[in-house]
Amino acid sequence: MSQNITIIKEDILREIKLSCKIPEVIEQIISRKVIISSAVEAGITIEPKELQHAADQIRLVNNLDSADDTWKWLEKHSLSLEDFENIVYSSLISGKLAAHLFSEQVEPYFFEHQLDYSAAVMYQVILDSEDLALELFYAIKEDEISFHDVAHKYIQDVELKRSGGYQGIVRRKDMKPEISAAVFAANPPQILKPIVNSQGYHLILVEEIIQPILDDKLRYKIITELFAEWLKKQIDQFEIELILD
């Protein structure tokens, strides 16, 4: 037999506090206020067609294929239609402000930080023993064993084991310095001599080095990163008076 339970706004606020999410929520509130005020100051406006397109994109991302799906989603999140319109507006105005502030800075920033956007397709096994790492390194070089077999034998994580230690496409800036130096000096496909750090002995197979191209995807990524840095600086300028009672 189902039972009814009543939740009031004070319960929600208390749960946010007990979940230690107050700082996160405060940052989101300030971010929204900074973005809106900065957009107004910059004279950025939103056309109805832009709002409609952005709303369609949000529905697409959330698999809201019909009006009924949309209403159920709104109800699930305790949102009104006006709230949904505010979500759409905030998302759109944030993107337009980011483009307004940083579109002209993308190319010089890219060329200055081009190395950071280099990437490598790589496989990795981390071992505890230097002797074992060296033994396996030479065995792979001599074709006595494949890297995939080493990964399958020595990796504990099931999914990583199945993929042969595949790390995906890893950007230079996301690697530890001692690893990136060796990876980007490689002549792929190449197995690297074990690299030691606090995690252990890294046995790495570099399959491919990918040189960065300033396409639309990377342009958007750079604008997003520059905007996030700018927004954080704006937030850090505020002194917050929090009144919860």
Rank of each mutant, 00 (worst) to 15 (best):
L115A: 11
L115H: 07
L115R: 11
D116M: 01
Y117W: 14
Y117I: 03
S118G: 01
A119Y: 05
A119E: 11
A120S: 03
V121L: 13
V121K: 14
V121Q: 13
V121A: 10
M122Y: 00
M122H: 02
M122T: 01
M122R: 00
Y123T: 01
Y123A: 02
Q124I: 00
Q124C: 03
V125M: 00
I126S: 05
I126K: 10
I126Q: 04
L127E: 09
D128E: 15
D128C: 02
S129K: 12
S129Y: 07
S129M: 06
E130S: 11
E130W: 07
E130H: 10
E130G: 01
D131A: 10
D131S: 12
D131Y: 06
L132D: 12
A133W: 00
L134F: 03
L134S: 08
L134K: 02
E135N: 12
E135T: 12
L136Q: 12
L136Y: 09
L136W: 07
F137T: 05
F137P: 02
Y138A: 03
A139N: 12
A139T: 05
I140V: 15
D143E: 15
D143S: 15
E144C: 05
E144M: 11
E144G: 15
I145C: 03
I145H: 03
S146N: 06
S146C: 07
S146E: 06
S146Q: 06
F147G: 05
H148L: 11
H148E: 14
H148W: 06
H148S: 08
H148R: 12
D149V: 04
D149Y: 04
V150F: 06
V150E: 05
V150S: 10
V150K: 09
V150H: 06
V150L: 07
A151L: 09
H152G: 01
K153R: 15
K153H: 11
K153Y: 06
K153G: 00
Y154S: 07
I155K: 09
I155M: 10
Q156Y: 08
Q156L: 10
D157P: 02
V158D: 12
V158C: 01
V158H: 08
V158S: 11
E159S: 13
E159W: 05
E159H: 10
E159P: 01
L160A: 10
K161T: 07
K161W: 02
K161A: 13
K161L: 08
R162H: 06
S163W: 06
G164D: 08
Y166W: 12
Y166F: 15
Y166H: 13
Q167I: 01
Q167C: 15
G168S: 09
G168T: 01
I169L: 14
I169V: 15
V170I: 15
V170Q: 00
R171T: 04
R172A: 10
K173D: 09
